[in-house]
Nucleic acid binder design. Sequence first.
DNA 1: TCTATTTTACTGGAATAACGGTAAAATAGA
DNA 2: TCTATTTTACCGTTATTCCAGTAAAATAGA
Lengths: 83, 83
Amino acid sequence: MSVKKSSHGPISKLVRKMRKHALLTQNELAELAGVGKTLVFDLENGHENIRFENLRKILQVLNIQISFSAPQIEDVKPAKVRK
Amino acid sequence: MSVKKSSHGPISKLVRKMRKHALLTQNELAELAGVGKTLVFDLENGHENIRFENLRKILQVLNIQISFSAPQIEDVKPAKVRK
DNA sequence: TCTATTTTACTGGAATAACGGTAAAATAGA
DNA sequence: TCTATTTTACCGTTATTCCAGTAAAATAGA
């Protein structure tokens, strides 16, 4: 799939930066992660609508940690979701 | 889709826990996040193969932060990916 | 410049996530 | 128990990710 967005999200830049530092080509990263090369290309170019599992595979190769943090339960209420 | 896995991942449990504390039903959470109810159900039941964008929408409603952290660039090298 | 590598880009088709609808369990409250 | 709510579950259809293949730019190195 071709990429429409011209503004690259934070993940895009992080992935590209880390891949460069790891001295990997897009194809190599794709192979190590077990995904298609198109996926790596799209991800680096702002196409963040990717399966979570595939994103995890790629980030794992690059030693990028994903963490989830929840606030204190007293504060929990539906957040304002911006359209 | 039906869920095969009986072992629920950490995200599953976190989502369910936070949803409960927010006093939301699965349907309400789905509506607030703008996704289908099946998606919330599947997520809470260990089906983590979900689109990253949809996961983000759900976590946003529950005030769960996603963060990415990269090690020092000197340490960056392809990680051992376990099959 | 010449050449090889890499990146960017597009395509068709296969795989599958996501959806609403429906309904049966499970749960909670009166 | 009775009732309403919620959760769990399955289904068919639709939408879209994902893939390999291909090729054209862009880049780097000799």
